[in-house]
Amino acid sequence: MRIGYIAANTFREAVRDRVLYNLIVFAFLMIGASLVLGQITIGVERELLVNLGLAAIAFFGVLIAIFIGIGLVSKEIDKRTVYTVLTRPVQRWQFILGKYFGLVGTLAVNTFFMGCGLFLALLYMTHKFERADIYVLIAIFFVFLQMVIVTSFTMLFSSFSTPIESAVMAFCFFVIGSFSTDLHSLSASAKGIVKVFATIAAYVVPNISALNVSTAVAHGEAVAGATVALNLGYALLYSGAMVAAAALIFQRRNMK
């Protein structure tokens, strides 16, 4: 219940943030631009719209997750409002979890609206929905899972560092996570100490590339139900571990 109140307050606070609306406007502009770009190419109008639309949702969603996520805890400490909350019967881990759910809720609403924008653009282009569009919906869900993970490690970084440092670390972590397939290939082919480091890195960084199916769905390729279940499970477990680590650090943090 207490987590719910904190989450609801975090959601209200996040939707008042101007950064959020600026980024959403840019995402819609990019989706709209893909309709214009479709006019100067041949035969890939739908592919371009799906690819650019999903990339825009992911890119701006991740930016929102990072830029709002870095301030969730630090702002409360700077404004000293955290003391007001923590003097009530609220555990520190409940505070962290509430903040996390609040931002994830905000991102869910954003992704929903940006997804609607993409589907409206698809409808405008093709004048009908087709079976392959279900897979675009799954791809949007995977983008949301990426944001769930990004929010979790952004909160982890922000629990022990400044907002700027957290933003840089979170962005680097996201980029390295996008190369996770390469890290797995490196760990398979390397030897000795390099193999050990590559293997550790491949499993520690989030596997963002597994959650990117945009190229396949742009071609109308199906996404297997097992893939959806496994990706959902992975995202929940990984982000759960990150949020638990953030709560652990925050629990031990000296607030005086």
């Binding site: 770009l37 190419t41 592919e47 371009l48 990339a55 590339s209 190229t215």
Partner: peptide, 14 residues
């Protein structure tokens, strides 16, 4: 392309 190679391919095709 950070995994968005399909998008980059569309751009190069254009």
């Amino acid at each position: 392309s950070l995994g968005y190679n399909g998008l980059l391919a569309d751009i190069y095709w254009t």
